[in-house]
Simulated assay, not measured.
Amino acid sequence: MKKVIFATGLFLAAATAFAVTDKLDPQLVAKKAESIEKVDVIAKLDQDKDGKLTIKEAMSDPVLLASFGKIDTDGDGQISQSEMEAAKLTEQEQGS
């Protein structure tokens, strides 16, 4: 019973999110999606769940691994959320 209630709530939340998204600025939605995507990369690869990626944790993503030194701007051997976001902004500026 709890699973049915939870699934129904999840469905209603998703339906509401899609309905609201139609009324939002497409650029804002895209920017938010990119931010979530970067958070997902950290969440997905962060084995010790400290909110940062080490080079060892980044080894399973060849693209991230190849860019590790550029993204790790403070040189501490870890990629923080702010460094990941800054790398995405730099990538967007260069693409413009």
Rank of each mutant, 00 (worst) to 15 (best):
E91M: 05
F6W: 12
A13H: 06
L10K: 05
T21G: 04
G95Y: 10
V29H: 02
A7D: 05
K2S: 10
E34K: 04
L28P: 03
L64R: 02
K44S: 11
A30V: 04
K49I: 04
V39C: 05
D48Y: 08
T90H: 05
M59L: 10
V20E: 02
D76K: 07
V20Q: 05
D50K: 12
A19C: 06
Q92H: 14
A14E: 04
L53E: 04
T8M: 08
Q81E: 10
A13G: 10
G77S: 04
L12M: 14
K31E: 14
E34A: 12
V29P: 00
D40V: 11
S80Y: 00
K32E: 14
D74T: 06
S96W: 11
K2E: 12
E34H: 06
Q47S: 15
A14I: 15
Q94L: 14
G69D: 08
Q81K: 14
D48H: 07
I5Y: 11
I42Q: 01
A7Q: 10
T21V: 11
K52V: 05
S82L: 08
E85M: 15
K32S: 13
P26R: 08
L64S: 01
D76Q: 07
L64G: 00
M1D: 11
V41H: 01
K52S: 06
S35W: 11
T90L: 06
K2L: 14
V4F: 14
A58E: 00
K31A: 15
I42N: 02
T21E: 12
F68E: 03
S82N: 13
I79T: 01
L28G: 06
A66R: 11
